[in-house]
Structure formats: structure tokens, C-alpha cells
Design a protein around this nucleic acid. Structure first.
Length: 272
DNA sequence: GTCCAGGCATGCA
DNA sequence: TGCATGCATGGA
């Protein structure tokens, strides 16, 4: 990875395997919007960013070096060799053709609080409406960054709300889950940083104890918000894919099941 | 109008 | 343990 400062922009050369459409608009993060010039704008880690591809380079706009190095490098996992990971996954026949068709899906390192809340909202819901609800939640209770941009609200802020407030942003029957989750995280009863330090099985167990979190939401949160690349979420789409693996997952998935899953999820949504 | 979406809690066997 | 059922809401 080579970083060049260009005026107010930061240009990154040599990032392999990062397709913005496949990564930012594939149901793992819900706060990115495609712009007319093909770039994406979004808020994460309390910061706004516009990001664009220029040939093989990535251009980070409307940000600064401090935010770039302290947050975005990790968020986009720029130091990880996804090309090598894809080569390993291509030992599997279905993934081989899938990666050829949809090369460039990455797992974003999202903040655990935002990921956990987002995937509680995601249950029995479609991606468009998940984005709608989260957008309303951020606008109502997030920090105002100007220009119609808002941060994802903290647990402390949301802990002040009642169930009816979550219903008002369209959370539906999930409102009661969000209400209790916010209060428990804010009070320290649920310690997300501690969960991060546990083994996969222990972390999953801790998440399953949370009201409104089942196996699917737990695995999504583990993969997208707690950096557990072995977590393998199975939703209605992945249940259809699993018929292609009657004998279980192939060996080449070991340790990177979650990355394999994201390719298969995308393939399923386009082909099944 | 009906069906469905990155499911879960609950009750019952 | 496993299975049936109710659940909010917006888009197709």
C-alpha cells in the first residue's frame, strides 16, 4: 500500500481486491450511498468520507490524514492481502466461479456497537428498509456533522430513549430489543470490548445472551463488528446456498469462513 | 390486496 | 431438544 497526499485528497495505490459496489452496498454496512460520479459517501467511526476509485487507485476525499490512518485503513482492512485469500477460497469450485464474477468483496471492520445494533434491526427485514430505519435513527439521535450527515448514535444517547422512540423510527417489533440493548451497553452490563477479546465460541455465547440476538444476528455482528473472520452467518439466502455443501464447508474456508460467506451471499442474491 | 425481507422469543410437545 | 406461531413495516 502506497499513500500519496494530493491537495485535500489521499490517494492509495496498490490496493487489490476492493470493489466499492460489492463491498459498500452488499448488506454488511448500511450507511453508504452511491453518488452520481460513482463514488460513495458515508459516515463511520464518527467521520464522514467520500471514497472513489481511479483506475487501480483509491481516492479518499473529504477526510484528513489523521482519520485516514487512525480509522479508515483498518475499516477497509487495507493491510490485509485479500488477493491471497481469494486464491485460497478458489480451491472450492463454486467460489472459484463466484470470485471470478464478483471479485473485490471485502469485510469491513465496523464498530461493534453500530454493527450489533444494525443487525438487530436487520432481522426479518430487507436491506432497503434496514437502511431507512438506521438513517432515521442517526438523523434523530446521532451527532450532526453538517450537510445532512449524522453519526451513528452512541449507546449512551440511545439509553435515554423509550420503546416508543424506536418504534417512531420504524423499528417495528425490534424496538424493545434496541431499548434494552442500549441501556445494557450504556450501563456496562454488556461489555462489547470484553466480548472482542474472547474466543469465537465464548464471544458468540455472550452475544446470544442478549435479548433479540439469535444465531444469525450474533454471527453477523461477530463477522462485521468484532473481527471474527470465522463467523459464518446463515440467513434465508445462505440456507439455499447450503444445499450445495451437503458434506459441510470445504477445508479451504478454514479461518476465513466469513469472507467465503460474503461471496456466496452475493452469488445467491443474484442467482437463486 | 398479498408476499417477503441478512430472525427471534415464546409456548408447547 | 425441536417445531409452530406471532411479530411491524415498507416495497414489489
Amino acid at each position: 500500500m502506497k499513500v500519496i497526499k494530493e491537495g485535500k485528497d489521499i490517494r492509495v495505490k496498490g490496493v487489490e481486491c476492493l470493489d466499492l459496489d460489492l463491498t459498500l452496498d452488499c448488506g454488511q454496512a448500511f450507511r453508504w450511498e452511491k453518488q452520481e460520479d460513482g463514488s460513495y459517501s458515508g459516515v463511520a467511526g464518527g467521520c464522514f468520507l467520500n471514497i472513489k476509485k481511479d483506475g487501480g487507485d483509491l481516492i479518499f476525499r473529504d477526510t484528513n490524514e489523521e482519520a485516514f490512518y487512525s480509522f479508515w485503513v483498518n475499516y477497509f482492512d487495507l493491510e490485509k492481502d485479500y488477493r491471497a485469500i481469494c486464491e485460497t477460497l478458489k480451491e472450492d469450485e463454486l467460489l472459484s466461479s463466484t470470485i471470478d464474477s464478483y471479485y473485490g468483496i471485502r469485510i469491513l471492520n465496523q464498530e461493534s456497537w453500530e454493527a450489533l445494533c444494525s443487525f438487530v434491526i436487520s432481522q426479518q427485514n430487507n436491506i432497503k428498509r434496514i437502511k431507512l430505519i438506521i438513517g432515521r435513527l442517526c438523523k434523530a439521535y446521532g451527532e450532526d456533522l453538517g450537510n445532512g450527515r449524522y453519526t451513528f448514535p452512541s449507546a449512551e444517547r440511545l439509553s435515554k430513549l423509550e420503546v416508543s422512540d424506536f418504534e417512531a423510527v420504524g423499528a417495528g417489533y425490534r424496538a424493545k430489543y434496541l431499548e434494552r440493548l442500549s441501556k445494557d451497553v450504556a450501563s456496562g452490563k454488556i461489555d462489547l470490548e470484553k466480548i472482542k477479546s474472547l474466543s469465537l465460541d465464548e464471544a458468540r455465547k455472550a452475544l446470544l445472551d442478549i435479548y433479540g440476538v439469535g444465531i444469525k444476528v450474533a454471527n453477523c455482528a461477530l463477522l462485521f463488528g468484532f473481527q471474527f473472520y470465522s463467523a459464518f452467518p446463515v440467513d434465508v439466502w445462505m440456507k439455499r446456498v447450503m444445499e450445495y455443501y451437503p458434506d459441510g464447508l470445504p477445508e479451504c474456508f478454514n479461518g476465513i469462513e466469513g469472507i467465503a460467506q460474503q461471496y456466496l451471499f452475493h452469488w445467491a442474491r443474484n442467482n437463486l
